[in-house]
Design a protein around this nucleic acid. Structure first.
Length: 621
DNA sequence: CCTAGACTGAAAGTTACTTA
DNA sequence: TAAGTAACTTTCAGTCTAGG
């Protein structure tokens, strides 16, 4: 007797047999032999059989007793199934020189199921096959005399078996392949199919979340179990773009083929939203805010959306010619940089030199810090740090004769790092002090590749005003916050969003409009202000973005309306208790899964919770 | 401290080719 | 001719590190 008792075959498709029976079986048995052992060397072989790509039945080959059992959940007899199987067995036994006995000695037994065990719907046959296999495996005794088998389960309990299967898949995963070298060892956890693959949780959520639009606008769902994080987030950013017609004009007039600065600031309202400001420079030398957008995150795609709205808005209002700023000044932020390059491919992005040097400084202090060793401590002297700072500052600030000269200066910095590293290596041996090496790596990966973004040398020939930094926008934010604090209405971090909008609309924008008009004309500011207000009133706020219009009341009780475009309204749901999903699946009770949203807190079913349930549902019904 | 993006290695998917 | 195979590409999750 073989030491192997079981062989579970991959399924067999009967309709294919006539043409390809020989090669198919050979491939099949060969694959089995390579993986573990020949299938006919087992005691029992379980072969799920598929008929007409529709129905499944279970067959068990008892190799030793030479019996083929066929169990069909409808109690129908498929004579040819047994014959074909027998044909296979004989062929394969011959080919692999395994004695399977005479063909006539084999018996084909169609098990007859009691009525309570028969399938009563059109979709459970697969579960029946699994259930039969499991029961037979568990008992490991299949004898031709014992028939019909007693009632092991009823057809009603198949739904529970389905849930059990879900439970087991969630818990154990699916073994993807068998390690040919160690066939008896279970696969490593890495090879288990994880929940995300079993349940395609990343696919769109279903109708309730669908909106027209690009894929990236669909909310994301991450269900994580086991090795993965147990959290599900339906993530929909909040976006509000604010730009008055007056600002639009400023942006069009003073932003086209000129420099625009962009920066974000936090802690302006009680929400943890960021406020982005775009400012342009007036020929008289002062800077004015030209657009605001408030977002719930700072991801690239969110910024792209806002910039697109602003660009399209100006295009529509001033159709003549293409409007495109020549340069954008931002701080060293990749999300902003990439977004600008996506929306304005022709514009050059420049990084604020102040932020660049700030980053340098931070990394010089952290990476080139003094280190305490076992016996000695190595000191990177302030002088050395000063030296490298000076060299980098030169790279940032100065204009060189040509690109080669800049390159030479840059390489000399790297060589300086190498030199210092070598000194340390000589003293302490390789790999013990890698301060300079890691700093060099940082320079190369983080800055060397993107030199055009931050070095003054590569900016020659560009028109971007007089500033090399986003200083004016930072000071604008600073003054803005200072004014807010000074108005004595409490902590700005506790204020509401509508208050912020009101403040922008009635304080900030008119201020700058006054200033601009004073510079452009000789009209007294009071009259200008009136004229500006007229424009604002007429346009309400941002025309063309009328998806949502709301009447709001500010702190002083003045009513004003705001219209804004929200490309998708939503909130973040933090669903906890997902680890209990498997119990929920068995109990059909979802109260253990909790969600942070208002509905969820009241124990009601909210959308993400419903989605989690739906995913389960799909598996057990 | 938090979020975003680059990077990385592994798995899954694709395709062209081989084999019986 | 269909299944297997190898080489290649794409996708995805996890890690790391950046800057605010």
């Amino acid at each position: 007797m073989s030491k192997h008792n079981l062989y579970a075959a991959r399924y067999a498709r009967l309709e294919r047999l006539p043409a390809s029976v020989i090669s198919a079986v050979e491939m099949w048995s060969r694959a089995g032999r390579r993986a573990t052992h020949a299938w006919l060397e087992s005691k029992y072989v379980f072969i799920p059989i598929n008929i007409g790509n529709a129905h499944w039945m279970c067959s068990v080959v008892d190799v030793q007793s030479q019996v083929i059992y066929i169990i069909d959940s409808y109690n129908e007899e498929y004579r040819h199934v047994g014959d074909k199987l027998l044909e296979w067995i004989c062929k394969d036994g011959e080919a692999n020189e395994i004695s399977v006995g005479r063909k006539s000695a084999w018996k084909i037994v169609h098990k007859v199921l009691p009525k309570q065990m028969m399938q009563k719907n059109g979709s459970d046959c697969g579960m029946f096959v699994l259930a039969f296999s499991r029961e037979l495996c568990m008992r490991m005794s299949i004898s031709p005399g014992a028939e019909p088998p007693g009632i092991v389960f009823t057809s009603e309990s198949v739904a529970d078996k389905r849930r059990r299967a879900v439970h087991e898949i969630l818990k154990m995963g699916i073994q993807g392949r068998i390690d040919t070298k160690r066939p008896n060892v279970a696969c490593s956890p890495n090879e288990k199919t994880t929940l995300q693959q079993v349940v395609d949780a990343k696919s769109p959520l279903g109708k309730q979340f669908y909106r027209d639009g690009a894929t990236e606008k669909l909310p994301r769902v991450r269900i994580k179990q086991g090795r993965m994080v147990k959290q599900m987030v339906v993530y929909q950013p909040f976006i509000l773009v604010l730009m008055s017609p007056a600002q639009e004009r400023l942006l069009w007039k003073y932003g086209n083929q000129r420099c625009i600065q962009m920066d974000s600031t936090f802690n302006i309202t009680r929400s943890k939203f960021s406020t982005f400001t775009l400012i342009a420079r007036h020929p008289d030398g002062f800077y004015m805010p030209c657009a605001f957008f408030i977002t719930s995150d700072e991801r690239q795609e969110t910024i792209v959306y806002c910039l697109q709205v602003i660009r399209d808005r100006i295009k529509r209002k001033y159709p003549g010619g293409t409007w495109c700023p020549s340069t954008f000044m931002v701080d060293c932020c990749w999300a902003e940089t990439n977004a600008i390059e996506q929306v304005f491919p022709k514009a050059r992005v420049l990084w604020c030199q102040f932020h660049v040097f700030q980053a340098f400084n931070r990394n010089i202090t952290s990476k080139l810090a003094e280190k305490q060793g076992v016996q000695v401590s190595i000191a990177i002297s302030p002088k050395e740090r000063g030296q490298i700072k000076k060299m980098l500052w030169k790279l940032v600030k100065e204009t060189f004769k040509d690109d080669d000269a800049w390159d030479k200066a840059y390489t000399s910095v790297l060589e300086f790092c190498d030199h210092k590293q070598k000194e340390i290596d000589k003293q302490f041996g390789d790999a013990s002090w890698t301060t300079w090496r890691s700093f060099r790596k940082y320079l190369e990966t983080q800055w060397g590749r993107h030199r055009k973004l931050w070095a003054r040398h590569f900016r020659s020939g560009l028109t971007y005003g007089t500033q090399e930094t986003t200083g004016s926008i930072e000071s604008f934010h600073g003054r803005w916050k200072a004014r807010l604090i000074a108005d004595g209405k409490g902590d700005i971090r506790c204020r509401r969003m509508d208050w912020l909008i009101h403040h922008l609309q009635h304080e900030i924008i008119p201020r700058y409009c006054d200033k601009v008009c004073q510079a452009e004309t000789s009209i007294a500011p009071a009259r200008v202000r009136k004229a500006m207000f007229h424009v604002l009133d007429e346009a309400k706020t941002i025309d063309g973005m009328k998806d949502v219009e709301k009447e709001t009341t500010d702190d002083e009780g003045t009513r004003f309306s705001v219209s804004y475009r929200v490309n998708y309204s939503g909130e973040v749901h933090n669903v906890s208790g997902l680890e209990t999903l498997e119990d929920c699946a068995l109990d059909r009770d979802h109260t253990q899964v909790k969600c942070s949203c208002a509905l969820g807190r009241n124990g009601q079913v909210c959308a993400p919770k419903m989605k989690a349930m739906l995913i389960e549902n799909e598996l057990w019904t």
